[in-house]
Nucleic acid binder design. Structure first.
Lengths: 343, 343
DNA sequence: CTGAAAGCGCTAACAG
DNA sequence: CTGTTAGCGCTTTCAG
C-alpha cells in the first residue's frame, strides 16, 4: 500500500473532465441507477482505485448526518471484564464498516455524561454504554427517538433502554447457596459499587439464598460498596478480618475485588480454603490457576459484547424492525477448590 | 444536563442579528483580538451557553484539517498488557481534549494496515500504534513529515520512528540468569510471535545469558513463535513436555503464554516449582496469587502508555521542539516462588 | 446519460 | 468593531 496523498472527488473529476456528481454517483454504486456509460464508469473507478480514493468521512458526515462511527463508553478499560466486551464491540463495529470512539469514564458519572455529550457532538451513529450506573438523568434523552444506544452490564430500573447483562441475582444465589450447603454460616459480601444494578441484584441473590435456608441476615457482613476496584477488595477484606473473626467465607462481587481480597488474605497469612473460603463473581482465566483454583460465577462477556453490537446495529441500520428490549444471559457456576466443606 | 438539540453557529448568529464570523470569533476566544464589544461578546457567549453550543467537529475538521482525535491501534485489547496501555492513552488524550478512535488489529498485519488507512482517511491528528511487528512497509509513510505516530511495545530496526518499549534483552537475561544460577540447565523458551522485536530481543537475552555461563544453546528448547496468545502457550507446552522430559524450567514470553503453559502443566499434573520452574515476561496482578506465585519480568505498562501519549502530543502540538527518539524503559525483575533451586 | 448549483457548519482572508 | 465572501469535500435536488 503505497502512500497516496488522499485524493478528492473533485480532483478525480477534473482529471477525467467529468463532473463531481458523476464521480460521486459511480463511486457510491449508483452508476446503474443513473445509467452512466460503461466507459465513464470504468475510467472513473479505475482512476479512483489507482489513487486509492476514499471519500472524506468528515465531508460525508457533514452532508449525510451519518458518520459510520459509534461510541464506546467504559468505566475502566483495564478491567479484563470490560476489555473483553470492548474487544467484541471493536470487532463487531469494524465488521460492519464502523469506527469506534473509545471513552474511559473512570467510573465517574460526570465523566460519563461528558463522554456522551462529546460523542453526541461528534455525531456518532450510536453508543454502546457500560454505565457507571449511579445516575441516569443524563441518559433520559435516549429514551425518545434520539440516538441509538445499548446499555451493557449495568442498567436502570426506571429507564427502558435496550440492555445486555447477566442474571446477577441467580448467579449470586447459586454461589451463596453453594457456600451454605458446604456448611458456611458467616458469609461476607465484598460489594462492588453500591447502587449499581449488578451490585444490588447480587446482594438480593445473596439475601434470598440466606432466607431460603432460614439463616439470619447480618448486615455487618455486607461490606464495601465504593468501587469494583482491586483497592476496594483489599481494604474491605483487611477491615473485615479485623472486625469479624467468625467469617468463614467471602463472596467477591467482581474479579478485581477478588484480587484485592486475595492480596489481603495473603498478607494475613490466611490459606484458602483451609482458613477461609472465597467465591468470585466474574470468571477470568487465571482464576483456575490460583493457589486455590477459585470457584466463580462466570459471565459470558464475549457474548455480551457481541449481543450489544448486534442490538445497537439493529437500531442504527434497522434490518426490518429493530428488536428493542435486550437480553439477560445466564451465568455459569464453576466449582473449583476455593470453598471448604465445613460439615 | 438537559438535552439541547445541538445548535449551530448560524442559528446563534441569526437570533442575535450578528454575523456568523463574529460568533465564531467570540466562541473561539478571539474576542479580544478583534476588539469585539463587551456587549456583543456577552450576549453571544450567554446564548451559546444557554443552548449548550459545541462547534460541529466535522465541519471544523473539514475546514481546519485538524480533528482533535487520535488513533489507537492495538493487536488485542483483551490482553491486559495492551488494555493497560490503552487506558493511559485514553486518559491522556481526554486530558488534552482529544478523542481516540480504537482499532483492534487482531495481530494481523493486513488489518493493521487497513486500520491505519482508515485512521488516515478519518484525518486523525496522530496515531499510537502497537504494531503487530512483522512488517513495516505500510509504515514507511510515517518516516517523512507525515502524520505523527508513536510505536509502542514492538519496533523495527530499519524504521526510525519514535518508540516506547522496555529493555527486553536485559529483562530476559535477568530471568535466564536467575534460572541458571538456580541450577537449571535445560531451560525452554516459550516464544511469542517470532520476528517481532520484543520476541527477538528476549531471545537474544536468553542466548546471551546462556553464553555468559558457558552453557550450550539447544535450539530444540526454543519453541512456539506463532503468537503471544494463551493457546500458543498451551499447545507448545504440551508438545514440549512430550518431546523433552529433561526440561526443568520454562521462560514464557508473555502473560497469556504463561497462562497457557499453566493450563498445560495442570493437565499434565506437574507442580510448580517442584516438577518444573517457570518465569513469565510481563507481570500481572494475579501472578502473585498463583499456586506458585510467579517470578516475572515486570513491564511498566502504565508508564509506557503515558509516555506514548506524551511523545505523540509533542509532535501533534509541539511545545517547543518535538523530542523525537522515544525511550527504552527498564524492566523490573520480581522474584517470587515459581523457580526451584536445584543446586 | 450528465451537470450546475446549493448547502451541510465552520473559519480565514479581505474589506471596511 | 463587524461583515462579506469563499471554500473545506461531499451529496442531492433540479434541470437538461
Amino acid at each position: 500500500m503505497p502512500t497516496t496523498p488522499l485524493t478528492t472527488l473533485k480532483r478525480i473529476a477534473e482529471q477525467l473532465h467529468v463532473s463531481e456528481t458523476t464521480v460521486s454517483r459511480i463511486l457510491s454504486g449508483q452508476a446503474a441507477r443513473y445509467r452512466i456509460s460503461k466507459k465513464t464508469e470504468h475510467a472513473v473507478s479505475q482512476l479512483a482505485r489507482a489513487h486509492n480514493f476514499v471519500p472524506n468521512p468528515l465531508a460525508r458526515g457533514l452532508r449525510l448526518k451519518k458518520t459510520l462511527s459509534v461510541g464506546l463508553v467504559i468505566p475502566d478499560i483495564s478491567n479484563p471484564f470490560f476489555a473483553g466486551i470492548a474487544r467484541e464491540v471493536a470487532l463487531g463495529a469494524r465488521k460492519r464498516g464502523y469506527s469506534v470512539i473509545l471513552c474511559d469514564s473512570q467510573d465517574d458519572t460526570g465523566l460519563e455524561a461528558q463522554s456522551i455529550a462529546l460523542l453526541r457532538s461528534r455525531r456518532v451513529d450510536g453508543i454502546v454504554l457500560c454505565p457507571v450506573g449511579l445516575a441516569s438523568d443524563h441518559l433520559r434523552e435516549f429514551t425518545e427517538n434520539g440516538l441509538p444506544i445499548v446499555l451493557v452490564d449495568r442498567c436502570f430500573s426506571d429507564l427502558p433502554l435496550p440492555y445486555v447483562g447477566v442474571d446477577n441475582l441467580t448467579g449470586a444465589k447459586d454461589a451463596t447457596r453453594h457456600l451454605i450447603e458446604n456448611g458456611h454460616r458467616h458469609i461476607s459480601c465484598l460489594q462492588g459499587l453500591r447502587g449499581t444494578s449488578p451490585n444490588e441484584s447480587r446482594l438480593r441473590g445473596y439475601i434470598e439464598a440466606l432466607a431460603e435456608h432460614h439463616l439470619p441476615l447480618d448486615r455487618s457482613l455486607i461490606v464495601g460498596g465504593d468501587s469494583y476496584g482491586e483497592a476496594s477488595g483489599y481494604i474491605e477484606t483487611k477491615f473485615l478480618l479485623q472486625a469479624r473473626k467468625d467469617v468463614t467465607a467471602l463472596l467477591a462481587f467482581g474479579n478485581l475485588i477478588a484480587l484485592g481480597a486475595l492480596r489481603a488474605l495473603a498478607e494475613e497469612k490466611l490459606r484458602i480454603p483451609e482458613d477461609i473460603s472465597i467465591i468470585s463473581f466474574d470468571n477470568q482465566p487465571y482464576l483456575a490457576h490460583l493457589a486455590a483454583p477459585m470457584t466463580t460465577v462466570d459471565q459470558p462477556y464475549a457474548e455480551m459484547g457481541q449481543l450489544a453490537v448486534t442490538l445497537l446495529f439493529d437500531q442504527v441500520q434497522p434490518p426490518g424492525r429493530a428488536l428493542k428490549g435486550g437480553a439477560l444471559l445466564p451465568t455459569n457456576f464453576i466449582i473449583r477448590r476455593s470453598v471448604r466443606k465445613l460439615c
